[in-house]
Lab assay of single mutants.
Amino acid sequence: MAEAPPRRLGLGPPPGDAPRAELVALTAVQSEQGEAGGGGSPRRLGLLGSPLPPGAPLPGPGSGSGSACGQRSSAAHKRYRRLQNWVYNVLERPRGWAFVYHVFIFLLVFSCLVLSVLSTIQEHQELANECLLILEFVMIVVFGLEYIVRVWSAGCCCRYRGWQGRFRFARKPFCVIDFIVFVASVAVIAAGTQGNIFATSALRSMRFLQILRMVRMDRRGGTWKLLGSVVYAHSKELITAWYIGFLVLIFASFLVYLAEKDANSDFSSYADSLWWGTITLTTIGYGDKTPHTWLGRVLAAGFALLGISFFALPAGILGSGFALKVQEQHRQKHFEKRRMPAANLIQAAWRLYSTDMSRAYLTATWYYYDSILPSFRELALLFEHVQRARNGGLRPLEVRRAPVPDGAPSRYPPVATCHRPGSTSFCPGESSRMGIKDRIRMGSSQRRTGPSKQHLAPPTMPTSPSSEQVGEATSPTKVQKSWSFNDRTRFRASLRLKPRTSAEDAPSEEVA
């Protein structure tokens, strides 16, 4: 009796068929016929556990003709996506030579605008209408194809895939403007070719909807975003200037109206006075309405000098805001240009540092100066060695804690006790272990408590650290204090090793 083939788990290929790579489910599931010992083939499952149809090819690079078809379809799909992405970037994010197409579109729109203006002049109306009709045909074809291509290429973005995504893309403001202008152009052409009475009025009214094509030149909205950011950044200043200017306008108009309503027919109503105030304070000055009385002229002159300053403030605020924003954008561009080279330089330096163990090129690091100058660790070890030599091999803490019996001779020589300023008595072995921070803190506390006492003391002649007598400086308080830590004499004296002298005989010792 033939044995059933062993159940295979995992992703390994079956024996005897090495080139074939078959994806098997996580659990080997066989058909009921196979479990019962029949000759049925096992049921194939996909990666998600769903059964595959009987005629479906197995996924994998070596699955025969199905694999070749899959490779061809995958390559075609990649080319399709690449083309779609390229078209989308050309239309929505132009760079380099892609601006040539947008310059061509701008020339078409500008020519249409010029011809629309010439069509309103009686001398050039006939020729402009003929040229404009031909140009409209060209623009309908160009913009119609462009609109379709834009909607198709938007599928390269995830949020615009599918018919719902394309509809979302078509609802964008600039796409809506394109659609309105396209419909208006078709209506103008249809009305112009019919030759009816309505054609002339339709051409004159709907052609100027094509002015909206100038708005579509900035599809990404960079200028509007820049203007919005400047207004938002200086909103408080703008609101303040406009508010005060509006108050000056209504008060000036009302007072001039009261002064001129009886003697001047131009100011017969408050609305006429508001019109005069707006034209005057905005420095336009049509001259259609002028005050005639001396009181009205004085009020107009005073409020004009006051109001023009507030009406001119928004222009200066926006101008300075634009300058600052442009400078910030230039700085951001320079930062973006330098970020990648800086990151590459840091990575290269780290690779060199991690692979080169000698690091002989590091001549400006802490390790280099640590090898030249005595390190703080060596100074600490030197302090501890000196203290243990004086205390008979014991550390200062051990000397303080060691009990001394009554009447027993002390094995240590008597030492002079010292007192730290602002604290109780402490171990004499710690007097010379006072660090730089303690010395600086002690000097600052003395300056806070009594700076007036220092200038009363007789001035001391500054001497070099080499000429100081070591026996005289029994305490860190003898170090000359200065008002600034930048004094080199104080810094050098604080680094010197001060020996400890006994109370009975204080021989001067120098520590090399």
Rank of each mutant, 00 (worst) to 15 (best):
S201T: 13
D218G: 00
F182C: 10
V230A: 15
R159S: 15
A252G: 13
V248L: 07
P61L: 04
G10A: 01
P54S: 01
P19A: 12
L9I: 10
Y232F: 01
R8P: 03
L45R: 11
S205N: 14
S185T: 13
R339M: 02
C158G: 01
V29L: 07
L47V: 12
F106I: 01
I134V: 11
A190T: 11
N344K: 12
I317T: 15
A76P: 14
T193N: 04
D178H: 00
L83Q: 08
H292Q: 13
P51T: 14
G34D: 11
Q327P: 02
A202E: 15
M1V: 04
V100A: 08
S201Y: 07
A68P: 08
T200S: 14
Q30P: 06
A301G: 05
G62D: 07
L115M: 08
R168G: 11
H124L: 06
Q329R: 13
H77P: 15
S41A: 03
I211V: 00
L313V: 15
G60W: 08
H334Y: 13
E130D: 09
L52R: 14
I189S: 02
L133H: 00
F179C: 06
G39V: 01
P19S: 13
E22Q: 01
P173S: 00
I239T: 01
F104Y: 07
R93L: 04
P15T: 07
G38A: 05
S50R: 10
E3D: 08
I140T: 02
Q125K: 07
R72S: 10
L118M: 10
V109L: 00
F322L: 01
I140V: 04
L23Q: 09
D262E: 08
C175F: 00
N196Y: 00
C158R: 05
D218V: 06
A263V: 04
F137V: 13
R8C: 11
P51R: 08
W242L: 13
C158Y: 08
S273A: 12
A199V: 00
R204H: 14
V141E: 00
S31C: 13
Y80F: 13
S116T: 02
G49R: 05
E126Q: 03
A56E: 09
R220S: 14
F182S: 05
S116Y: 07
L133R: 00
A315G: 04
V90L: 06
H102R: 02
R213S: 00
H234N: 09
K172N: 01
I121M: 12
T193A: 01
L26I: 04
N196H: 01
V183M: 08
N89I: 13
A4V: 03
I177N: 00
I211S: 00
L305F: 02
P53Q: 03
S205I: 14
G39R: 04
S65L: 08
F104V: 01
P173A: 10
I140S: 15
C131W: 04
A300S: 12
R43G: 06
R7H: 03
Q194R: 08
E3A: 11
K236R: 00
G66C: 15
H124P: 02
G39D: 02
A342G: 01
A75G: 05
E123D: 12
A170V: 01
D17H: 15
Q194L: 14
Q164R: 10
V117M: 15
S74L: 12
